[in-house]
């Protein structure tokens, strides 16, 4: 094993690098990143105080669980919202189609922060929704639903014309064509993007902290305030999100690979 083979990918032979090469190179990348971080904090002359933050570990856990719960429920609802929006978009009744289109464009075109404020102070107030966790879940479902609808739409439009012609020739009705030909293929090709969107939903839920929903980010901010520290609680915060998003992004990669082999 030469140093060269530990650090360089062999020419495009399609094989992934050896385990030693991967471990060594990953360690170097991680080390480089750490050096930059340490240097930055060294310049700041920052006094670390981990023990005070450590005392609040139960609060971190509670916040993390809240984020996990809010994200999970929002995810289910956002699939529902996304599906409904997609169905509306495909409707032949034009007002419904335009409504779906408007929804997707407005949500995708404005910052989540603005949506949270508007929804919380205007719509939720007007509709007299008292429970702010319910409001949070609704906001995330509506926000993420627009993106999911867009993913479904791309998946459906990606089903080849020859497939539709074939379904027609076989004598499938419109519903059967959707049920047996379009939906399974669209869903398969959407899976990697859907996994990615799930990771986004988890991260984006951190913004719910601004309407005092006691999720992971708000709890971390509170710990910072209690302990007069400024950075210590952000590290566990980052790690907590990574614990959720890394496996999902990994899954997304695997799905992408599998999709490539299938077609």
């Amino acid at each position: 094993m030469t140093p060269h083979s530990l650090l360089f990918d062999s020419d495009s032979d399609g094989k992934s690098p050896s385990i030693q090469a991967r471990v060594t190179s990953f360690a170097i990348a991680l080390l480089a990143l750490s050096v930059v971080l340490f240097a930055a904090f060294y310049v700041l002359q920052y006094q670390w105080n981990w023990s005070s933050v450590f005392r609040y570990k139960a609060k971190f856990l509670q916040g993390w669980l809240a984020t996990l719960g809010i994200s999970s429920i929002s995810l289910i609802f956002s699939f529902l919202v996304g599906t409904i929006a997609t169905v509306c978009y495909r409707s032949r009744f034009l007002p419904l189609k335009y409504l779906a289109n408007l929804y997707v464009e407005l949500i995708r075109g404005t910052p989540l922060l603005v949506q949270i404020y508007l929804f919380f102070y205007v719509i939720a107030n007007a509709a007299d929704i008292q429970n702010r966790y319910l409001v949070g879940v609704l906001i995330m479902a509506i926000f993420s639903g627009a993106y999911i609808s867009e993913i479904f739409r791309a998946g459906i439009e990606g089903v080849g014309r020859s497939q539709l012609l074939s379904a027609k020739a076989i004598g499938f009705s419109e519903y059967q064509t959707f049920r047996y030909v379009i939906a399974p293929q669209a869903l398969r090709s959407s899976l990697p993007a859907l996994a990615g969107q799930t990771a986004n939903l988890i991260k984006d839920s951190s913004l719910l902290s601004i309407i005092a929903i006691s999720e992971f980010t708000l709890n971390a901010q509170e710990v910072n305030a209690f302990t007069y520290s400024s950075f210590e609680s952000f590290f566990p915060l980052a790690l907590g999100y990574l614990a959720l998003t890394l496996p999902i992004m990994r899954l997304s990669r695997i799905l992408e690979k599998r999709l490539r082999f299938d077609t």
Binding site: S162, Q163, L165, S166, A169, Y180, V181, Q185, D262, T263
Partner: peptide
């Protein structure tokens, strides 16, 4: 069809 058009 020319391109078979089976369901993949």
């Amino acid at each position: 069809f020319q391109a078979f058009n089976l369901f993949p």
